[in-house]
């Protein structure tokens, strides 16, 4: 199987069993198939994929830790006709870059974020991440992550799915051929949404880190299935098109109207306004 045109010939430098390579390939294939590679600009984070600008065969920017969504915003605002993606890990996106992530999503930036969640800091050698699971042992949670001390992990796509600026928030995994194909469909859809101006899209990819988890590649996939997927269930958390809207503006208007109606109804019934349910989960 040859490398897609969206990747350079440079061999990946990732550890054996690391899922970065798979996801890089899915991104590159999606862009190639949509014939977008030539007008794509990627932004890579600080973390194991810090040198990913060497692997993607398009224009690339390397961003400061956590700031990829802001860098992507700057690029997209300056060149709205380009396709812009940010590729980030969990420490980058969900710890130091949470504000940039939330606000890029809230603004409905027409960018695509690929979020690699493997519940650990890889590049620095296995420290606790914002998505490390309760009781997970890492270099900086040597007795297991204690929520009483270290708090609870962030479920990023669930959190972002509440924002009107988000067109697509989906969680996938790449633990086997079937799920890899599903992940590819999600990533491709995210770029289609960007191309069509639907809104901000984020695909969270539940991933492994065999090296820092201290497991073989195969055992790491088992650990992912047994521990990660129950905590971070794959699924579509927000898809404004599937909900019957053309874009985030329409979806936001519909949600606003729905909330206003509920508020009026509740007020006449003498009850406090309550949040409407119905968001896909």
């Amino acid at each position: 199987m040859g490398r897609p045109g969206g990747l350079t010939d440079k061999p990946f430098s990732y550890c054996p069993g690391c899922t970065h390579g798979i996801v890089h390939r899915l991104v590159a294939e999606s862009l190639d198939e949509l014939e977008l590679t030539g007008r794509t600009i990627g932004v890579v984070p600080v973390g194991c994929s810090v040198t990913a600008y060497e692997f993607f065969n398009c224009d690339m920017a390397q961003a400061a830790h956590g700031r990829a969504p802001a860098v992507a915003t700057g690029i997209k605002r300056a060149r709205p006709d380009n396709i812009v993606f940010a590729y980030q890990g969990d420490g980058d996106l969900a710890a130091i870059g949470t504000a940039e992530t939330v606000h890029a999503a809230a603004r409905g930036e027409q960018i695509t974020v690929i979020f690699i969640n493997n519940a650990i800091y890889g590049m620095t050698g296995g420290q606790m991440a914002p998505t490390s699971l309760p009781a997970q042992i890492t270099q900086t949670s040597p007795y297991g992550r204690d929520p009483q001390v270290a708090g609870y992990p962030l479920r990023v796509v669930e959190m972002l799915s509440t924002l009107d600026g988000v067109a697509l928030a989906q969680r996938v995994t790449v633990d086997g051929p079937r799920n890899i194909r599903a992940a590819k469909r999600a990533i491709k859809k995210a770029f289609e949404y960007q191309r069509d101006g639907v809104g901000y899209s984020i695909i969270e990819v539940v991933s492994t880190c065999p090296t820092n988890w201290g497991l073989s590649p195969a055992a790491a996939l088992d650990w992912l299935r047994q521990n990660m997927l129950p905590y971070y269930p794959p699924g579509v958390y927000r898809d404004v098109v599937a909900d019957g809207h053309a874009d985030i503006a329409q979806a936001a208007a519909a949600r606003r109207a729905e909330l206003a109606e509920q508020a009026t109804g509740n007020a006449s019934a003498g009850q406090p306004a309550r949040r409407g349910g119905g968001d896909a989960a």
Partner: peptide, 16 residues
């Protein structure tokens, strides 16, 4: 959303 974000938007737009 912050001066930090602003300067990084500058980074992106300048790179573009």
């Amino acid at each position: 959303e912050s001066e930090i974000a602003a300067i990084n938007m500058i980074y992106g737009a300048s790179a573009a």
